[in-house]
């Protein structure tokens, strides 16, 4: 009898304790989220930013957290950081109306006029810009299940309707698969970076003594090509290239290896 009681207690502990721990953790970061929101409401923007940053760095990567971070930085007049976080949020919640409004407002205040040209892929797969990777994946996942299911049905029952249906699903599956592949590539090879300083010199080489090629201002989005000894080689859509100090710019893709001060490519 005692053995059964011990066994029951052990099973109960194994099953429910991790749950309780997880719940405690959830309450922890929910508390942190509420505290950060309260700090923002009271105008303590730096405290709010610290709270949101802590959430983002402890694995709660979330479009809404980045959006709130962007708002906090905007209130502190750090336009570069604001745009950086809005862009990070846009990767996760691209159709959020508040986010798009705020990002547009923040972009209006950038000094540099840089037009992003639209390539063939962006035009042909126009929907990719307004869908997150997760949404594209689930769309493709559903198509994948439907496509193989109709093929499976055709193994047992061949008819005209399932022949045409399989053709339709084949086309949709190809489009969905290509979209997913492109979105995956877009997200994981995102080389965009944001200028964080009010004004930075773009030099001809990775040395402070090199010739100044042009100047960029806070909030401008550039493309990061490679890093070298604390310098970033950046490129603009109009093919202008140059070197900038790594601490004055930050990549939108949150990758510890690509963050300022990280190891070099």
């Amino acid at each position: 009898m005692r053995r059964y009681i011990c066994l029951t207690i052990t099973i109960f502990t194994m099953v429910f304790l991790p749950g309780l721990d997880a719940e405690a953790q959830t309450n922890g970061w929910e508390d942190l989220f509420f505290r950060a929101n309260q700090a923002f409401k009271e105008g303590h923007y730096q405290d709010a930013i610290d709270g949101y940053e802590q959430l983002a760095q402890t694995g709660h990567e979330n479009g809404h957290i980045y959006y709130n971070l962007g708002n906090g930085y905007f209130r502190l007049n750090q336009l570069g950081q604001a745009i950086l976080n809005y862009e990070r949020a846009r990767i996760l919640i691209p159709r959020d109306a508040d986010l798009n409004f705020n990002l547009r407002h923040a972009r209006d205040q950038i000094q540099d006029v840089i037009a992003e040209p639209q390539g063939f892929i962006q035009m042909a797969f126009f929907w990719l810009d307004s869908l997150s990777l997760r949404e594209v994946f689930w769309g493709f996942g559903i198509l994948n299940v439907l496509f193989w299911s109709i093929l499976l049905i055709r193994l047992f029952h061949r008819s005209e309707w399932n022949y045409y249906l399989s053709l339709v699903f084949l086309v949709l599956w190809l489009i969905g698969g290509t979209s997913f592949g492109l979105k995956w590539y877009q997200v994981w090879t995102d080389g965009r970076a944001v200028i964080l300083e009010k004004e930075v010199n773009i030099l001809a080489g990775p040395d402070i003594e090199d010739t100044v090629l042009f100047k960029l201002h806070e909030g401008t989005i550039v493309h990061h090509e490679r890093s070298e000894d604390g310098w970033f080689l950046i490129r603009l859509p109009d093919k202008k290239r140059g070197w900038v100090e790594a601490e004055t710019v930050e990549q939108i893709k949150r990758d510890p290896m690509a963050l300022p001060g990280g190891s070099h490519n």
């Binding site: 929910e30 929101n37 809404h64 709130n68």
Partner: peptide
């Protein structure tokens, strides 16, 4: 800012 706790479970 977005303050709803529901927001934390979406957009990940």
């Amino acid at each position: 800012v977005h303050t709803s706790i529901k927001d934390l479970h979406s957009g990940t």
